[in-house]
Design a protein around this nucleic acid. Sequence first.
DNA 1: AAAAATAGAGCGAGCGCTCGCTCGATAAGC
DNA 2: GCTTATCGAGCGAGCGCTCGCTCTATTTTT
Lengths: 236, 236
Amino acid sequence: MTTPSAHAGYPAFHRQVCSRRDDYIREVFARHQEAIRVKKESVVVRKLAAIFDKTLEISNRHGFQAMSVRDLSEATGISMGSLYSYIESKERLLGMILTYGHVVVDHTLRIPEALTGPRERLHHVLRTHVYITEVMQPWFYFSYMESRHFDRDTREQTIAGELRTERLIADLLDEGVAQAVFPVRDTGLTAALIKPLLQEWYLKRWKYRRRGIGVDDYADRMIAFVDAALNGAAET
Amino acid sequence: MTTPSAHAGYPAFHRQVCSRRDDYIREVFARHQEAIRVKKESVVVRKLAAIFDKTLEISNRHGFQAMSVRDLSEATGISMGSLYSYIESKERLLGMILTYGHVVVDHTLRIPEALTGPRERLHHVLRTHVYITEVMQPWFYFSYMESRHFDRDTREQTIAGELRTERLIADLLDEGVAQAVFPVRDTGLTAALIKPLLQEWYLKRWKYRRRGIGVDDYADRMIAFVDAALNGAAET
DNA sequence: AAAAATAGAGCGAGCGCTCGCTCGATAAGC
DNA sequence: GCTTATCGAGCGAGCGCTCGCTCTATTTTT
């Protein structure tokens, strides 16, 4: 279990995450077992995969609340009754989908210890973030767009996750400042300004697709932009 | 750094936009008159203001589709029947609200001709954008979050507006490149990376409020960040 | 008293979810 | 080895409820 050391480019990353997909869904099954009436794991994994995919697809077009369970039933080809032996309730389905994303992200976003320089570590985090949001674009888009409708606890959990990423970037900037690599003054605010550049990739991907800009292109350019901003920060 | 016509700070800007509010709503009334059964302009303007405010308030918490017209009736204190003599349909209400925002933005986002230097012109656009999204935060948030649920035409109109802002920034960057002010290579992509920094202000304002960062603070820091990125672009 | 504005009960459609049932695969009995 | 009993997965009409919207009676304004 390792993240590809530094980065072998997006395709390798994509393949690795996809190959583990069933494991991730099995983990979701384990965490929500009391809500699922169907027993056989292989059946559950196959169906959940379809249910998650179609839910994200429909929700990201019309909103989760606007998606009726009948819509989902029709899209997956699973009857109403059958569907409800996998999801317990529409709300629980939401919880499962969020769990799914968290499981994937937790297994993916780690900084290899081999990387020691603050700039290299920052670059790695930025690139990995772009990569994982590319693989899981529907999930990140969903999580971003729907979070304001979540119940209090779930919403605060999502916000906490968001702030954790920002904190991670701020800490890396602090490291860089301590080692005199970045001439940044307010690392907290700078991290806050870098964050939307990461989110841009999964929120407005269609714009870049239209222009023929791929994942690695975006990561390169965005990292260059950030580097320039960090370097130029001394001047003003 | 500020030219007289350019910016006297946020408070003055805020006062000016607010004082024109009734005029903007009158314009909305004019454009949607066939959908409104109530005749007297003064009554319509007063009620529409309340309807728009509450719609944005409720929708931004739970989503426009999740807001029932009964909720809106209760929040505004206007009965169901009365409400429907102002809005014709929930969909038309959406159209009116979008019109409202467009009217305000069209009257506000203009570059004073007195500004000639590309950097000053860019700064003006960035700052004005932050200012207007501060005054109209609920509207911008609404428009951003709900646009994916709009019907085809309305959605494309919203996207076109988004791309127009990006184009404006890209053109200013091109000007700067032509006059050797900015050493930027891909102005289109750079503009695309600046855009989310503008949107950040109305999408995540709570984060900055929590930290005690005000409008002018954000505008200053964000513009400094962009300047740094534009200056540093030559190095890599 | 005429016109304009407001009120709120009521309508059909569509929502999330349930429940009595069918069906095919596997296990148990002989 | 054939029959029978058991089980889990799948099905979809139907329930109680809320939705967007309407319509007529009533109040307010002029």
